[in-house]
Design a protein around this nucleic acid. Structure first.
Lengths: 234, 234
DNA sequence: AATTAAAACGAACGCTCGTTCGTTATTGAC
DNA sequence: GTCAATAACGAACGAGCGTTCGTTTTAATT
């Protein structure tokens, strides 16, 4: 059960996926390149960084829909016209953030899952990957979680599909564990809902965990303990 | 552990606290009486019902800040002027909902807790009460959870205080259980965070639970099982 | 039927929003 | 140093916002 400690920790995760500060912004720019009017990459990435960070800050304060582009202009020190060269429209600004997350998710933990491993290993891997990536991109995931209401139907659907996908993934692993006899019988739906909610809590209530000085490794240990106690046969 | 089943179920809860449809709206009117310009109680209650329900519906669709009072006017069939006789202002409309929840909470489960009972009993009572009341007032709690950003500082503080209160309550019960030796040693902070998040999930993701035909009694049983497995000495 | 108080109405007001676009400043190649 | 190309600028626009208030309708009392 604890075979992953030290062997698959946060530091190793960060060094094995493209999630350094530079790489993240580079990836964000690449994903949205064709929508952005500014052509010089170095300039564009720097300004996007400023804009997105300011968006997160203001959205935390008053919510995305109450954040005006004049607020954003003031916070970034850019003019209204400049902003529009980067974001296209207010709606597109929100959509760009939302589209980025599944992209990074695939990049970082999409292909790592292996059905030949034991259900416990698969489950732990999924949980760890989830916590690690949301730890690296906490403001992004927090924004996406809080500001789902303002999206076009198509992007809203994309968000729903992604959530469903991860729930099915969880459900399958639990089912496999039951079949192999390593997990006791349980309500697969309720169990995956619980795991999802524990994973979400890490980035939704991040401030509280920071205040209590809980780091992501001990949070993972806690989840694994709770799920283990509940699922594993004794 | 299962002594409460049948003896303290949802039906009994509903009949022992003032939470019938009529009583809820009556209580809401009483709490905000002095802010409302319309004097005839029967008329006021009926219109408030219409307004609040429409607010919940529109907020679910596009979020409170994107809901205009013209939307609300159309949805309720009332004129702008009439609306203002009931809500005072858009901000006050949101605040009235937020203020109502701790009020109902106190009314329904505030005084039922008894420190002489066993920690297990106290914990189960708290969990059951929480699920039951959020089951009865699901749209209210959902609205309050999603739309915290638009509040005045004072009401935001009130919301924070209330959350802190319930976390301390949980922490104390767990601590008492540890001292009495009925709970194993655990991280009290992480444990209460988990319980809170399980409780919140019931009204935040209500649609998903409805789709899978999970009722509140079986959800409570699930929580008690998970927490029991984790906390109770074997 | 007349009177009066309460409730509902909705056009109008001032303001702020997202967005545009003609102009100015900056950059880099020659 | 010149000159295109690129980026930044910010005043202006129309739409829609929350809110108000003079008027009309409704309801209750006499």
């Amino acid at each position: 059960m604890n075979q992953w400690q030290g062997e698959n920790n946060f530091a190793i995760f960060k060094s094995s996926v493209p999630i350094s500060n530079q790489q993240v912004w580079q990836a964000f720019y690449q994903l949205h390149k064709e929508k952005i009017q500014v052509q010089k990459e170095k300039v564009a990435i720097e300004k996007l960084k400023t804009i997105i960070k300011a968006t997160f800050k203001l959205s935390n304060q008053k919510g995305f829909s109450l954040m005006s582009l004049r607020d954003l202009s003031q916070e970034t020190g850019m003019s209204m016209g400049s902003l529009y060269a980067y974001i296209g429209s207010k709606t597109q600004l929100a959509e760009m953030v939302h589209q980025f997350l599944p992209h990074m998710f695939d990049l970082c933990i999409g292909e790592q899952l292996d059905h030949k491993e034991s259900p416990q290993q698969q489950l732990n891997k999924l949980i760890r990957g989830h916590i690690f990536i949301t730890e690296c991109l906490q403001p992004w995931f927090f924004f996406a979680f809080m500001e789902t209401k303002h999206l076009s139907r198509s992007i809203k659907q994309l968000a729903k599909d992604n959530e469903a996908k991860s729930e099915i993934l969880l459900g399958n692993i639990i089912e496999q564990g039951e079949k192999e006899g390593v997990f006791s019988q349980s309500d697969k739906f309720l169990t995956s809902m619980m795991i999802k909610s524990l994973l979400q809590n890490w980035y939704v209530k991040r401030n509280k965990y920071k205040q209590s000085k809980t780091d992501c490794e001990s949070y993972i240990r806690f989840i694994e303990q709770v799920i283990g106690n509940y699922l594993e046969k004794s």
